[in-house]
Design a protein around this nucleic acid. Sequence first.
RNA 1: GCGGCCGUAGUCUAGCCUGGACCAGGACAUCGGCCUGCCACGCCGACGACCCGGGUUCGAAUCCCGGCGGCCGCACCA
Length: 507
Amino acid sequence: MPERDLYERIIEIAKRRGFFWPSFEIYGGMSGFVTFGDLGTRLRRNIEERWRDLFIRRQGFLELSTPIINPSRVFEASGHLAHFKEYLVECSRCGRRFRADQIIEEETGLEYVEGMTVEEMVRIMEEKGVRCPECGGDFKEPIEFMTMFRTSIGATGKETGYGRPEAAQGMFINFRRGFELAREKLPFALAQTGRVLRNEISPRKGVIRLREFTIMELELFFDPEEPGCARFEEVAEEPVRILSEEMQLKGVREPVELRLREALEEDLIKTVWQAYFMGLSKRFVAHLGVPPERQRFRAQLPEERAHYSAQTYDHEVLLDRWGWVEVAGHAYRTDYDLRAHAEASGLDMTVLTGRGERVLPHVVEPSFGLERLTYVSMEYAYRRVKKRTVLSFPRDIAPTNVTVLPLVTRDGLPEKAREVYRLLLDEGFLVDYDEKGSIGRRYAKADEIGTPIAVTVDYQTLEDETVTLRDRDTWRQVRQKIEMLPGLLRRYLRYQLDFQDLGEELK
RNA sequence: GCGGCCGUAGUCUAGCCUGGACCAGGACAUCGGCCUGCCACGCCGACGACCCGGGUUCGAAUCCCGGCGGCCGCACCA
């Protein structure tokens, strides 16, 4: 039997222990959708909470929650409708499919075909005799595809709505209110996490590419004349691995490691704020368990970039099966979106700066995919130890904080253990209780879902109110008074204490 | 959407080529017992599956067709 790769092992645990599984299973399934179980929901929430803490709370930014369904005017204004309608042509002989605009550009040397109407494209294809580059066959009529989900709003169905493909537009259309709430000062930022919808043609790779997923997004508005970031110094010396646009064009495959300060000085990153968020991003992903050498920032090439982007660095993580996978995008959106909404709505989106001038703010956007990060955290937490599986999650994102185990199921030990369990529940911990099977087996099961601490109630507990605490990663044990547990565990889970600080070491 | 491979209990899998002894076997998990003194202990018992639909056949997990789904490659991925 071929060795199962990491992805398969993670998927197996995910299904068996209830992290996540394919949606709509009882009706045969539907790719691009995933359902999170109890553990997965908690893991996801913990990761989202870490993001919120780092990117919103500690920055003093403002959080929003805006609708998923938007009227079509929003995406007409933002350019998504125009840029997201693509045409495919299919070869009538070999059946291969191509993007109409690309094939025309390649075959005729024309540029900017993307904005053309179907009729224009058909006309050009006939005039220039565009044929299948693979077999020389004729093309059929172009087929339109739209990767935004369309729906209708209200009873008449006259109003067309779309599922948002990004949360960003919610921030842009609320820019004026946000600016007021931020006391009319630049720079400021609006952020939100929430579901977005992308009707992918053929999603693959399970939880990596979904039609409905959770985005964690932040729009930082700044004065283009005063683009400084006061907190940049906090990350200026952070080393990052960068693969710039220029490097890729030269065929360079290995990123260079630079400090963010150097990357800015060498003009690899266009704005300070973008560099700042890349620094936070690297630390955030590192905190989720991905070592720096398995992360990189790759600039998107012009043809890859979204219509609104002047520069985008994809934050990529090396995954076992798929290689480098994007977990975040850092885009410099300039004033594209505010300008677009100002024009479409007729409202003035300029603001008065400290210099007494009216400017249209520029925008830098870090944007993260939560489900991908959740998978990434599982893959990087995965370890095999003595034929058992351990998910060594960082202890502040582990879906369970602590498990309480009576050493044996007699002599009053279960009763005592339940008391401890109740105490920890009352203190707000995510806690499991397990009395089935041998103690070693229960440790192993707790390890498999990444529970950082196991509390064992033994015969000594009945005498002196102490329990043992066992570390998931080292199997070391310490003994501590029950009443001390809540305070110590709370600090331990926040990385304010090390394991040896939790009590007196055993053995 | 095209091409290749694939779909058996909660999970992983045997069986499929060469149809019948398969009312589908195993391991792990789960449940009920017995056991229990710190790392998936042992024993007994129980629950539990052929993706869906059609066809061929006396007989289909097995062969054929269609659908759905998965993985890989191409395309796509704002």
